[in-house]
Simulated assay, not measured.
Amino acid sequence: MRILIVEDHPDILANLYGFLEPKGHVLDSARNGYAGLALASENQYDVIVLDIGLPGLNGIELCQKLREELSIATPVLMLTARDSLSDKVAGFDSGADDYLIKPFSLVELDVRLKALVRRAEGQHAVSHKLRFGDLSFDPDTQEASREGRPVVLTRTGYILLRTLMQAAPRIVPRETLEQAVWGEDRPDSDALRTHIHALRQALDKPYEHAMLRTVAGVGFRLVLPDAGS
């Protein structure tokens, strides 16, 4: 299995690596919620192990973003010291598939992860393709097209396109786009301007009508070709 572990406690993380890697599992890890979100958006995993008490973006918020914003259906097992019924309900409501209370048995964790992966493999994949007019984007395959013609972008370009399409035709503030690409580690320079220019060249240059609009002093939005400013 390829497993993403989002856990900020170094001892727990070390124990997970020490137990799971010798079993042949391939592990990636993040120590905060935003780093976990970035890894989950960039890579394909069989299962995600997610702590609730994370810095920056907690596990509940991270799981919600995985499900609602990124449309990632990868099974999620939450690790947490919070054992009240309300905590469990919040975890499942956010999109988690299983819940394990700290301290936990590593053997039980491994068994639960395998069960989640088997269950996911037995389900038909659900298409989460985004569409806005003649523009479409599949977050799972990173394939975009307009009027049936491929739109080829960089990794950052696909993140920007996904964020804009999820909100379309609403305005997406600059800060939201920067957060989607860089999290809390935003560059000092106006890097967003460069990436937006590249997105506009790929998305609009071959066509008569532009879909990507700048809203001065606020952000950016996608509009349908027959829509006004």
Score class of each variant (00 low, 15 high):
135 L>C: 10
134 D>W: 00
101 I>S: 08
125 A>M: 14
75 P>K: 08
137 F>M: 07
79 L>D: 03
124 H>I: 09
94 S>T: 04
139 P>E: 02
115 A>C: 08
113 L>I: 15
118 R>K: 15
99 Y>S: 01
130 L>I: 08
104 F>L: 14
105 S>G: 11
107 V>P: 02
128 H>M: 05
143 E>L: 15
132 F>P: 13
87 D>S: 08
75 P>Y: 03
81 A>F: 02
141 T>P: 07
86 S>H: 06
97 D>C: 01
131 R>A: 13
122 G>R: 13
142 Q>G: 11
104 F>K: 13
76 V>T: 09
85 L>C: 01
104 F>A: 13
107 V>L: 11
94 S>V: 02
133 G>Q: 09
136 S>E: 12
129 K>Q: 14
109 L>H: 13
90 A>P: 03
96 A>L: 04
92 F>R: 00
116 L>C: 12
141 T>C: 04
128 H>L: 05
130 L>Q: 11
128 H>D: 05
86 S>P: 00
87 D>A: 09
90 A>E: 04
145 S>C: 07
122 G>F: 03
93 D>E: 07
84 S>G: 04
106 L>W: 04
116 L>P: 10
93 D>A: 07
104 F>C: 12
83 D>E: 03
90 A>W: 00
88 K>F: 01
142 Q>E: 14
76 V>H: 11
122 G>Q: 11
135 L>G: 10
102 K>S: 08
103 P>W: 03
84 S>I: 00
87 D>V: 02
109 L>C: 14
126 V>T: 14
116 L>S: 07
97 D>Y: 01
108 E>N: 11
91 G>Q: 01
87 D>T: 02
97 D>Q: 07
82 R>Y: 04
122 G>M: 04
111 V>A: 15
145 S>L: 02
112 R>A: 06
99 Y>G: 05
120 A>C: 10
126 V>G: 06
133 G>W: 02
80 T>S: 10
122 G>K: 12
133 G>I: 06
142 Q>R: 15
87 D>M: 05
112 R>P: 11
128 H>R: 14
118 R>S: 14
105 S>W: 00
92 F>I: 00
122 G>V: 07
